[in-house]
Computed example of a mutant assay.
Amino acid sequence: MFLLISDLIEDGDQSSLVARLRALVESGVCVVVLLALSDDGTPAYDHALAATCAELGAPAFACTPDAFPELLATALRREDVGRWAATHGATAAG
C-alpha cells in the first residue's frame, strides 16, 4: 500500500508523478491519494490531477479524520470509493 497525502498542487513535473503512480498501480500496489482540506474543512486540491490519479486506479479522496479509517478500508478492499464517499459525506475525485 502507498498512501499519498497531498493537495496535488505540483510546482514540479506532474508527468513524473503520474508516471510513478501508474507504475505503482500497474505493479499491483494499492495506491490511495488523500487530498488536502482547507482550514475550514473544504477540500482544497488540484481537481484535474486528482481526476487523473483516479483514472489510473489510484482513488483520490478528501474526508474528515473521523471518516478516514473507514474510507481507507474501502479502498484497501478495492471497493468503489466514489460510491462510499457519496453516501458518507466525503469527496472523491474522478
Rank of each mutant, 00 (worst) to 15 (best):
I5F: 14
A73V: 09
A93W: 01
A90W: 02
A48Y: 01
E79F: 06
D46P: 10
F68A: 00
T87I: 02
D40P: 02
L72V: 14
H47Q: 15
T42W: 09
F2V: 15
E55W: 11
F2T: 15
L24K: 08
S15D: 15
P69E: 02
P43Y: 05
L8H: 04
D39A: 14
A44Q: 00
D7G: 06
L72W: 07
A36S: 12
R83L: 14
R78Q: 11
M1H: 08
I9S: 02
V32G: 00
P59V: 04
C53K: 02
S15V: 12
G12K: 08
A92N: 09
A86M: 10
H47Y: 07
E79Y: 08
F61Y: 14
D46F: 06
P65A: 10
L49C: 09
A90F: 05
A60Q: 02
S38N: 07
H47L: 13
L3S: 08
A19H: 01
L21W: 03
S15E: 15
A67W: 02
A85Y: 12
L24R: 07
A48D: 11
V29G: 06
L72H: 10
A44V: 12
A48W: 02
T91N: 11
G89K: 04
A73C: 06
L21S: 11
V32K: 01
V31N: 06
L3Y: 10
R77I: 09
L71R: 00
E79W: 09
G41L: 10
A85E: 14
P69G: 04
V25I: 10
T52A: 06
S15Y: 04
G82S: 06
V31D: 00
P43K: 06
I9W: 05
G94W: 04
S15C: 07
P69N: 04
L71G: 13
I5G: 13
R20N: 13
A73W: 08
D7R: 11
V32C: 02
A58T: 00
L56E: 00
E70Y: 12
W84N: 05
A44W: 05
A90Y: 06
H88V: 07
H47W: 08
C63G: 01
T52N: 00
A67C: 02
G12D: 09
R83K: 11
P59D: 01
L24C: 12
H47M: 13
A75K: 02
E26A: 12
T42D: 09
A50Y: 09
R77S: 13
V32T: 04
G89H: 03
L34N: 11
C63M: 13
A92F: 03
L35M: 03
A85R: 11
D11I: 09
L37Y: 05
L21F: 07
L24W: 06
V29A: 12
C63N: 02
W84K: 03
L17H: 03
S16T: 15
D13A: 06
L76W: 11
G89A: 05
A23E: 15
D46N: 13
L49D: 00
A92C: 11
A86E: 14
H47A: 15
R22K: 13
S16E: 15
L8M: 07
L49R: 05
Y45P: 06
D46A: 12
D66L: 14
P43N: 07
S15T: 15
E70F: 14
A19N: 03
A54N: 09
